[in-house]
Amino acid sequence: MIQMMITIALVLFAIAIGMAVLRIILGPSMPDRVLALDVIGVNLIASIAVISVLMNTKAFLEAILILGILSFIGTIAYSKFIERGVVVERKRDR
């Protein structure tokens, strides 16, 4: 029963990822796509958590945190790129 629920959740997350990829492909604008990637990241975090539960192991919990951190960094990089084209500036003009 519990196994069942967890597995269903896992499948749901996978479906969510799949739909988000669809958004990446469809676009239409770049922020849409990045948004979708962000969603994928979040879903991956969830998936990892669920898999950890399923396998009953603590080994992957670091990955959750890392993924959280890095999808954030990634999103920032993308949004800066979309906004300015330059990801890292030499000197902020202010």
């Binding site: 629920m5 967890i6 269903i8 959740a9 896992l10 499948v11 749901l12 997350f13 479906i15 969510a16 739909m19 988000a20 958004r23 969603v39 979040v42 879903n43 969830a46 958590a49 669920v50 539960v53």
Partner: peptide, 12 residues
């Protein structure tokens, strides 16, 4: 977890 899954699909 299951709720999270459902939620996630809805949001997507």
């Amino acid at each position: 977890i299951l709720l999270g899954g459902i939620m996630s699909v809805i949001s997507v």
